[in-house]
């Protein structure tokens, strides 16, 4: 089996008396989509923050591409190749769609401390930005101001910006939320093809999407991973059924 690109080992995090994550092991291997599911308040976002940066675990380590990144700030992790999309769209709302994509291309290329030539006339940055917008289907909206985009389109733009970073792993926090049925299906088809470029850690509420896309699924309940396995294994897992999914039939 290929070595994992992202490896979370024994991560725990408490806020006062509340344990948000307890001894979590999780890995993402090349070419796979690893879905992380769990009820609201299970600690999914807390875990993502410890992987992407911004929140230090109380114990445990996070390894990325063979390197211990536990103490690194968010920006350094992004430069190493973590492409993150946010649960609540986190874009420069006053910018145009194209400007947001160029921002990603610029952050990835570096050379931010240049003061003279216009960024929006840099052919290299524009080409990379437009390619990413085209891939998520936002090419025709590039001149629109980001605040004028629909909720779903902002999600697509988040993914496009992550694409401009050419990451080694994608960390996607509910990329489907707010997308209509059609948008959802398009993004699913796109993520399906994306896994061969870079693996995806996918936090998602949409069970259809998870069970269609994921190679492996981890189930997080009350800060603990109660099961990790293939889609079929998770479907068949009694503990998952009773603890999280109830007795409802799984898709």
């Amino acid at each position: 089996m290929a070595d994992p690109i992202l490896d979370v080992r024994g991560v725990s995090k408490s806020f006062g008396a509340v344990t948000a994550c307890r001894d979590i092991d999780l890995d993402v291997r090349p070419g796979e989509i690893h879905a992380l599911i769990g009820p609201n308040g299970a600690g999914k976002s807390t875990l993502i923050k410890q992987v992407a940066g911004g929140l230090a675990p109380d114990s445990g380590r996070v390894f990325f591409d063979g390197q211990d990144v536990t103490g690194l700030p968010t920006a350094a992790r992004a430069r190493l190749g973590m492409g993150r999309t946010f649960q609540i769209s986190s874009l420069a709302m006053e910018f145009t769609v194209l400007q947001n994509a160029v921002l990603g291309a610029l952050g990835h290329r570096g050379g931010v401390f240049r003061f003279f030539r216009p960024a929006m006339k840099d052919a290299g940055l524009l080409a990379r930005a437009r390619e990413a917008l085209d891939q998520v289907g936002l090419a025709e909206f590039e001149a629109l101001r980001t605040s004028e985009l629909s909720h779903g389109q902002r999600r697509q733009l988040e993914v496009a910006v992550a694409l401009t970073l050419e990451p080694k792993v994608f960390l996607m926090d509910e990329p489907m939320a707010g997308l209509g049925a059609e948008g959802s299906h398009r993004l699913m088809a796109f993520l399906d093809s994306l896994r061969h470029k870079a693996p995806i850690l996918l936090v998602e509420h949409d069970m259809d999407a998870v069970f269609t896309l994921a190679d492996r699924v981890s189930v997080l309940v009350y800060g603990e991973i109660i099961a990790t396995g293939t889609v079929d294994e998770i479907r068949a897992n009694e503990q998952v059924r009773s603890a999280y999914l109830g007795d409802e039939a799984l898709p």
């Binding site: 992004a78 874009l91 420069a92 990603g104 952050g107 931010v112 910006v161």
Partner: peptide, 18 residues
């Protein structure tokens, strides 16, 4: 461009590695 983005959203700037 990057400074203006930081004013609007620091998370975004960090997520693109700056």
């Amino acid at each position: 461009l990057m400074l203006n983005a930081a004013r609007q959203n620091e998370d975004r700037v960090q997520a693109v590695g700056q």
